[in-house]
Design a protein around this nucleic acid. Structure first.
Length: 862
RNA sequence: GGAAGUUUAGCUCAGCUGGGAGAGCGUCAGUCCUACAAACUGAGGGUCAUAGGUUCGAACCCUAUAACUUCCACCA
């Protein structure tokens, strides 16, 4: 083994080893319990970022842990076709060639996207491998593959038959840049400084005017009415009258509607039913005409644009404001902060637009999805995310699922050329006939929201709608690990889809990972240029160090701040383990066979084995509770503090090398097993270098448990006492600035224990001529006297020693007073649990004992 | 407007069901001891945001306040 930890030398080789030995593959096995995770499919347009790294690390830990525990563990990987993002990417590519997608036609364009997918689609999964992710790559899926398409079409068909999918004219968020509708959650609102334009609408036939206020003056071209509150005294007399719409000359009515807020703006609102969600509702209530004043690309329509037709929406705004001003109808312009929706994908300002789209009726689907979370069948970790899930589900609005894009699952709806009837057909026959009149049909040009196929991911990837063996065995899946920002996009939709189609929950636990922020706590983003590239980090420090860094000091759902110091600390631990393993190997002959005879075990052997057993318990418990950071911390502590700082040092002075080395090897192997889910590469590499292990694979080994180990709590506690005294001596030596060795006299009731432990005092605390007695005898030259209960002291400078003793006495007396007061408190004794009272009583006894020893020592001194 | 989260050592953060406050890094002091200076040994450092309350007992539970962060809704 190399002298320092150099992950580059083995990570790739180890990953290949696992793949060649099919360590990641899972098959239905009736004698085992399944444990399934489906990957949140990354976009094929994506590049690995820290968010993936964190998410992948969590999943890989869980899956490796369960695999070692004996579950048939399946981690099913795949990628997302990401319709809007991918289509935009290819359109951009074509643009550079000077080609419009329309010129290629649907088929031509799609073949270009598939080419693109072939070239870049597996970039992200290649990158994921570098993290050590143990996905069953033989089962890799794609949200736009044939199986997913079958599932999508079946769902669409059934939902349509059940009346849960409908097509209708509704206000949707329209992105004029992507030229498609987007769903509510795909538009992101941001406060922007804008203006409030007050415009005067003259009454038809003269005799005054009514003043309205708007943030989007250009939309007046599509106005159908002016609305006021029915109780508004200022305008009551105008209701029912007609005003002349400026710049168009069109006459529109003044209507009364409760929707209007009397106290906002002027109390009078222009109503544009085709271009505003509230106005749409008002328009329906009052049976107003819909005037479409804007085209798909954000330009002003011919229909009501007049001289502004063809202008871009913002140019039109300028022109209209200027014209209003010159006509004297612009009353005033006020600065106004308001939130503006932007397309999640391209950041263009979205326009609310009335449009014929396909929707999923959400109310009924939401009910069971709410119940299954409320009754605990599906749990969120951490729990607090349950609230936002339920809050969203309980107020969910119908889901707009159609997109005016080509890259995606095409909507299997056919319109009759004769009667216009809709026929949903998933037979893929050449000529679908109208189900009503039998006439020829043409298929809907639109595709489905990417999330429609993602919603089926946990079961479509296992073969559904076929009742495959995989589906029967691996479904429902166990844990879903994802980021909180896609609870609505994805998690919620998987839950209601699964319940509707499979009749079962898709997973029982949703574990949320936080996001990785930069060192100032800012979100990492491409535009800010503050992203840290995981691949570069792996290159420099190794994947294991990155993984450990992402875990330590973090609890589920909380964000992580990137710091260079954290990754070096993680790397340093890897190096520590590496070197400890080198030490073990240096001392072991290649043909070494570990042999642990309980009769030959020394107290420190029993201590380290017991510590290992305790570590197994707590790591397992914490992993089961999804406290991955705590679990990792426990293993690190065992390896670094117990194994490296203590046990290895102890073995150096042992006489019974065979036993010591056997125990050492056992402790190291145990540590490697417990650490493996967190740091798979280094543990595997070390394991294969251990004697007799060159053909074994650590990731296939059974999980370490206390039951498989010898366990000696009594001796472990004994050894703790020895370790405590050694620490005391070290402190003393530093405080007293003693450079060389010193003699020591140990006072204890357990003479045998300390006599056998004397070599450790020589080795670990630089002492010599130690003697162990049941009572402190007499002053000698430069001798430290230490007792199990009191701190050591030197019998050299009596004055100094007396001062130190007084200080310590004061502390112990305070302890005694505190504990006595507590136990004298009638309330405490009466109401606290008995075990707690006993515990405090024991503490008091110990403190009293320590106090009396200290008192005796100070007598000896004076 | 509604909701959630955070506030603990100089810094970054743990602290699971309430029982005398922890880690890493940094700081200071001392170490080349036959694995490791990417290390070892030790020390110092906190009114657990503030104010009340519940309790025998509060970093932890309740109420209010403040600051920061995030999500949802509305914004003519």
């Amino acid at each position: 083994m190399d002298k320092t930890y150099s992950p580059k030398n083995f990570e790739e080789r180890i990953y290949k080893l696992w793949e060649e030995n099919e360590c990641f593959s899972a098959t239905p096995n009736p004698s085992k319990k399944p444990y399934t995770i489906v990957i949140p499919p990354p976009n094929i347009t994506g590049q690995l970022h820290m968010g993936h790294a964190l998410n992948q690390t969590y999943q890989d830990i869980l899956i490796r842990f369960r695999r070692m525990q004996g579950y048939e563990a399946l981690w099913l990987p795949g990628t997302d076709h990401a319709s809007i993002a991918t289509e935009a990417r290819v359109v951009e590519q074509l643009k550079r060639e000077g080609v419009q997608k329309e010129e290629l036609g649907r088929e031509g364009f799609l073949s270009r996207v598939w080419d693109w997918k072939k070239e870049y689609g597996d970039r992200i999964t290649k990158q994921i491998r570098k993290l050590g992710s143990s996905c069953d790559w033989s089962r890799e899926r794609f949200t736009l593959d044939e199986g997913c398409n079958r599932a999508v079409e079946k769902v669409f068909f059934d939902l349509y038959e059940k009346g849960k999918i409908y097509r209708g004219l509704r206000i949707v968020n329209w992105c004029p840049s992507c030229k498609t509708s987007i769903s509510d959650i795909e538009s992101e609102y941001e406060d922007e400084d804008g203006f409030f334009w007050h415009i005067s609408y003259p009454l038809a036939g003269g005799g005054g005017s009514i003043e309205i206020a708007t943030t989007r003056p250009e939309t007046l071209l599509g106005d159908s009415a002016v609305a006021v509150h029915p109780d508004d005294e200022r305008y009551k007399h105008l209701v029912g009258k007609t005003v002349t719409l400026p710049l168009t000359g069109r006459e529109i009515p003044v209507i009364a509607d409760e929707y209007v807020d009397k106290d906002f703006g002027t109390g009078a609102v222009k109503i544009t039913p085709a271009h505003d969600p509230n106005d749409y509702e008002v328009g329906l209530r009052h049976d107003l005409p819909f005037h479409f004043m804007m085209n798909e690309d954000g330009t002003i329509s011919d229909e009501c644009g007049g001289k502004y037709a063809g202008l871009d929406r913002y140019e039109a705004r300028k022109a209209i404001v200027a014209d209003l001003e010159s006509e004297g109808l612009l009353v005033k312009v006020m600065p106004h902060k308001h939130s503006v929706g932007h397309c999640q994908r391209c950041n263009a300002t979205v326009e609310p637009l009335a449009s014929k789209q396909w929707f999923v009726k959400m109310k009924e689907l939401a009910t069971p999805a709410i119940d299954k979370v409320k009754d605990g069948s599906i749990k969120f970790v951490p729990e607090r995310f349950t609230h936002s899930y339920l809050n969203w589900m309980e107020n969910v609005r119908d889901w707009c699922i159609s997109r005016q894009l080509w890259w995606g699952h095409r909507i299997p709806a056919f319109y009759c050329d004769d009667c216009g009837e809709i026929t949903v057909d998933i037979s893929h026959s050449d000529a679908v006939k109208c189900r009503k009149c039998g006439g020829a049909t043409h298929q809907d040009e639109d595709t489905l929201d990417t999330w429609f196929s993602s919603a089926l991911w946990p079961f479509s990837t296992l073969g559904w709608p076929e009742e495959t063996n995989d589906f029967k065995y691996f479904y429902p899946t166990a844990t879903l690990v994802t980021a909180a920002d896609i609870i609505f996009f994805w998690v919620a939709r998987m839950i209601f889809s699964a319940l509707e189609y499979t009749g079962e929950i898709p997973f029982d636990t949703v574990m949320l990972n936080g996001i990785v922020r930069d060192e100032h706590g800012k979100k990492m983003s491409k535009s800010a240029g503050n992203g840290v590239d995981p691949l570069q980090v792996i290159d420099k420090y190794g994947a294991d160090a990155l993984r450990l860094m992402l875990l330590t000091g973090n609890s589920p759902g909380n964000d992580i701040r990137w710091r260079e110091e954290k990754i070096t600390a993680a790397r340093n631990f890897a190096n520590k383990l590496w070197n400890a393993s080198r030490y073990v190997l240096m001392n072991l002959p290649a043909d070494f066979v570990a042999e642990i005879n309980p009769d030959k075990l020394a107290v420190e052997d029993k201590w380290v084995l017991t510590k290992l057993g305790d570590t197994c318990d707590s790591v397992t418990l914490q992993l089961e509770r999804f406290e991955l950071g705590i679990a990792a911390g426990k293993v690190v502590d065992f390896v670094w503090e117990v194994l490296c700082d203590w046990y290895i040092e102890l073995t150096k002075v042992r006489e019974d090398k065979q036993t010591a080395l056997s125990v050492l090897l056992c402790a190291l192997e145990g540590g490697l097993k417990l650490l493996h889910p967190f740091m798979p590469f280094i543990t595997e590499e070390i394991y294969r270098n251990l004697p007799q292990r060159s053909d074994d694979i650590l990731m296939k080994e059974p999980w370490a448990t206390k039951n498989n180990l010898l366990y000696y709590p009594k001796e472990a506690a004994d050894f703790e006492k020895v370790a405590q005294l050694i620490k005391k001596l070290r402190t003393l030596k530093q405080e007293k600035n003693i450079a060389g060795k010193l003699s020591v006299e140990i006072e204890t009731n357990d003479v045998t224990l300390f006599v056998t432990s004397l070599p450790f005092f020589y080795q670990l605390a630089a002492t010599e001529h130690a003697t162990v007695t049941t009572a402190v005898s007499d002053k000698q030259g430069k001798t430290a006297v230490i007792t199990e209960h009191a701190t050591a002291f030197l019998l050299v400078d009596t004055a100094e020693e007396a001062a130190r003793l007084r200080k310590e006495l004061a502390i112990v007396q305070k302890d005694v007073a505190f504990l006595t007061a507590k136990l004298n408190n009638a309330g405490f004794v009466a109401k606290a649990p008995a075990a707690q009272v006993d515990k405090e009583r024991e503490k008091l006894n110990a403190a009293n004992e320590k106090l009396s020893k200290l008192l005796r020592q100070s007598e000896t001194l004076s």
